[in-house]
Design a protein around this nucleic acid. Structure first.
Length: 805
RNA sequence: GCGAGAGUGGCGGAAUGGCAGACGCGCCGGCCUUAGGAGCCGGUGCCUUCGGGCGUGCGGGUUCGAGUCCCGCCUCUCGCACCA
């Protein structure tokens, strides 16, 4: 080959790599995982970015000598397949599997170092059999249960949504405004794990991006405070509220219950009923988006009853309002307007009294600003004079003693609603029997296969399409044999993806979801790579699943992903690529134009991996130019006359330094800087080669490093250098520490912080000698201009700073 | 509003408290060429009286020394947002 032709190189090595195994059995194991793709069409630019990064990490780890697990599979159940099938009148399965093949071919072309023997698809029966099996383990533990509750409903997709799938009041997937419906649905009891999910983040700190940990922390939303029981005038049963500020109990001047809670309905007097019902209807008519608007005026209605403050017996009017949420805390609050802004807004809107019980700078009743901070308590009986912490402790103790309340911790996290009224998912393996109730399908009858799409009316109608497969639904009860019905819902795809990383460890295992020995050997994932969009969905669910499996003694670890890297997005001219904007860049077309390696290098070199890459700012041809230069260099270095050439120490040293720096940057995922160092090395070696020096050793090292970013070109270079075997099986270059020891270093001499001279000195130079030499330097004397020396800072051998008086 | 992160040349971005701007793009000049949207070489923060001066969002501080650490602002991005 006389010209660098990336496409010819790709064709050559793609074939040659067909049976290449990059595993290193016997070596220390490391699991490098990319978030698996959803098969909606071909790979796009975002995949290019994610997998360039993931593959650089995986290949680097292999070259460092580890036995690396780097698998690929598909998150293959889900709505898009079903919607596409409805639109085209085809089967979701055929659409899905066709896309998977397309993506698999593209991944191969992209040169990703996957272990193809471990491919899995979550829609394969041999996979979802175990998804169902795991569901049943949770069911047995009481961690999967059914309840009726107001749920998020997407009117467009005609299915329920988990809290995590509602973003700004809209369906995360289709953007339709979410409404509420009262439905009986399946839940996982993730709330039981709230504290552990929070606590175990300690071990992830520093290994996961801070913002992901923060998002999870916020989502779990731990609040410490107390439950307080309020008797209601004329009722026997007290109403409990949750408050984070029990110390302000003496400042309570009214009481609010959520307008849409059953409690409001129950407490309302008959005189107030017409007003209440009118208000409730008005609230129901609001969309989630309107309801969540911060700038809304406070609204509400008096219910006609009074609550009795347990600490002083005061009668507090009970109101219904929509600023109190039915599904948080107890759905009722004590209102302390002086020290809570929302309560104050409400009090001012309805002329309710404001009583200060914590001293502050100004009177909230006058200023309209509640004082929420710490301070000395007043008007608070036994709490007078105490600060916030003391008052909380005191009042909680006395409430507990009087059996009127107790210290408590509550969470914002809700249980995970997992059932979906759609076809293309794993059927919930439960049979509903008129006499036995919810009966699990016995393990040996798994999987509960989906009925063929032909037997099902896929059109969404608010009930699961599986219900229309009448023969499939009718089944004898596994327990008593009576006529019973299968559960017709399917599981949310996030259930499938909550354990796929475990399945990769033993994808063909038939005695369970995974081989415990294999999982123990590989897990936890050493490096997980994926988008930040999964910060609270997939990542929280997977952490929950892992903890459940730990409790079931199925895995010996508590956290699935030891380290996480969130890659940035690929945008175009400052905007996300989208069909509606028409600014999409086609990955396949770019690969055809510039070659796979040039695109991979472009994406890696453009910015640090967690930053976005703006395609308008990058230069694939620049990356291509560099690859061509390396290719040329490898050809020259591999030529026969190398043997007779002299070795240049300066080149060797400079190369060693660049090698060492590249390694350091790879260790910290600074792929952009690692590539830059390799470019420097290329320039250096080009010059040395042109000067007639031997460079084969250094070019070989460069080639091995290059294979982490640009595997095709590196393989071709390896060949041109006469290397045996494949470059991917070589060892990352080791640096001779001797070469890093310099015999002369440049010492910078500053006068008043400005560089005035440079001295060439031995690295072991004594401080005193260095100071003498610096003070004698003509340029230094000139800069001093006769001023005397006040102070000299010596940092041998790199720097001298002379401070004139 | 609360929380997290970020502000460095024309651009993407480098820089264990110690030479700011590595590397690349772009641009300028040169070589080569019938030609150049190829290749190679050199230059490229700003100002300059060519001595040098000024420069990392703004204002202070710590330090012999600050892009880096501390305090206060400003701007942007992301997340959360009536969560009691």
């Amino acid at each position: 080959m006389s010209e660098y032709d990336p496409h010819a190189i790709e064709e050559r090595w793609l074939k040659a790599w067909q049976d290449l195994d990059l595993r290193r059995p016997g070596a220390e194991k490391r699991y490098v995982l990319d978030m698996f793709p959803y098969p909606s069409g071909d790979l796009h630019m975002g995949h290019g970015e994610a997998f360039s990064i993931g593959d650089a990490a995986a290949r680097y780890t292999m070259l460092r000598g580890y036995d690396v697990l780097h698998p690929i599979g598909w998150d293959a159940f889900g709505l898009p397949a079903e919607n596409a099938a409805i639109k085209r009148g085809t089967d979701p399965a055929s659409w899905t599997y066709a896309n998977i093949e397309t993506q698999a071919d593209s991944f191969r072309r992209f040169g990703v170092s996957f272990d193809w023997s471990r491919r899995l698809n979550t829609c394969d029966p041999e996979y979802y059999r175990w998804t169902q099996w795991l569901f049943l383990r949770l069911f047995e533990k009481g961690l999967a249960y059914r309840k009726a509750s107001p749920v998020n409903w997407c009117p467009n997709d005609q299915t329920v949504l988990a809290n995590e799938q509602v973003v700004d009041g809209r369906c995360e997937r289709c953007g339709a405004q979410v409404t509420k419906r009262n439905l009986t649905q399946w839940y996982f009891r993730i709330t039981d794990y709230a504290q552990r999910l929070l606590d175990d983040m300690e071990s992830l700190s520093g290994q996961w991006p801070d913002r992901v940990l923060t998002m999870q922390r916020n989502w779990i939303g731990r609040s410490e405070g107390a439950y307080v029981d309020f008797d209601i005038d004329g009722y026997d049963v007290p109403v409990t509220v949750f408050t984070t500020r029990p110390d302000t109990l003496y400042g309570a001047t009214f009481f609010v219950v959520a307008a849409d809670a059953a409690l409001a309905e129950r407490l309302c007097t008959s005189e107030q009923r017409p007003a209440f019902e009118a208000y409730r209807e008005k609230v129901k008519g609001l969309s989630e988006i309107e309801r969540q608007s911060t700038e809304r005026e406070k609204t509400g209605v008096f219910l006609g009853v009074h609550a009795l403050n347990p600490v002083n017996g005061e009668r507090l009017p009970v109101w219904a309002a929509d600023y109190v949420l039915a599904d948080y805390g107890t759905g009722a609050i004590m209102a302390v307007p002086a020290h809570d802004q929302r309560d104050l807004d409400f009090a001012r809107a309805f002329g309710l009294p404001v009583r200060v019980v914590v001293e502050g700078a100004a009177d909230p009743g006058q200023t309209g600003t509640a004082t929420a901070g710490d301070g000395r308590h007043v008007n608070s009986g036994p709490l007078d004079g105490l600060d916030k912490a003391e008052a909380i402790a005191a009042v909680t103790a006395s409430l507990e003693q009087a059996q009127r309340g107790k210290g408590a911790v509550i969470f914002r996290l809700r249980d995970w609603l997992l059932s979906r009224q759609r076809y293309w998912g794993a059927p919930i393996p439960i049979v509903h029997c008129p006499s036995c109730g919810e009966v699990p399908v016995p393990d040996d009858q798994l999987p509960v296969l989906l009925p063929p799409a032909d037997d099902v009316d896929l059109l969404p109608k608010g009930e699961s399409p599986l219900g229309t497969a009448t023969d499939w639904v009718r089944v004898p009860c596994p327990r008593c044999g009576a006529a019973a019905r299968r559960d017709t819902d399917t599981m949310d795809t996030f259930v499938d993806s909550s354990w796929y990383y475990l399945r990769y460890c033993s994808p063909h295992y038939t005695d369970g979801p995974f081989d415990p020995a294999e999982v123990a050997a590989w897990m936890p994932v050493a490096q997980y790579v994926g988008g930040v969009e999964h910060a609270i969905l997939h990542l929280l669910y997977s952490r929950f699943f892992t903890k459940v499996l730990y409790d079931l003694q199925l895995v010996p670890f508590n956290e699935p992903f030891a380290a996480l890297l969130n890659q940035g997005q690929v945008i175009n001219a400052g905007k996300a690529m989208s069909k509606s904007l028409g600014n999409g860049v086609d990955l396949g077309a770019e690969l055809s134009r510039h070659g796979v390696d040039a695109i991979r290098v472009t994406l890696l070199f453009a910015s640090p991996p967690e930053e976005d890459v703006d395609w308008a700012d990058v230069s694939p041809s620049g990356a291509g130019k560099w690859l061509k230069r390396v290719w040329q260099l490898a050809g020259d270095a591999g030529a026969a006359d190398e043997a007779g050439r002299p070795v240049d120490q300066a080149t060797q040293r400079a190369a060693a330094r660049l090698l060492e720096e590249t390694t350091r940057h790879m260790d910290h995922h600074r792929f952009n800087v690692a590539v830059a160092r390799c470019m420097e090395l290329t320039n250096l070696l080009r010059k040395a080669c042109d000067a007639g020096h031997a460079v084969r050793t250094e070019v070989t090292a460069l080639t091995v490093m290059l294979s982490a970013f640009a595997p095709y070109t590196a393989e071709e270079c390896w060949d041109r250098l006469g290397g045996a075997g494949f470059v991917g099986r070589q060892a990352w270059p080791a640096v001779d520490p001797q070469l890093l020891v310099q015999d002369v270093v440049t010492c910078v001499v500053q006068v008043a912080g400005k560089v005035r001279a440079r001295l060439q000195v031995p690295p072991t130079v004594a401080e005193a000698d260095l100071q003498t030499a610096a003070l004698a330097d003509p340029a230094v004397l000139e800069a001093l201009a006769g001023r005397s020396v006040h102070k000299v800072i010596v940092r041998a051998p790199k720097l001298v700073n002379i401070v004139p008086s």
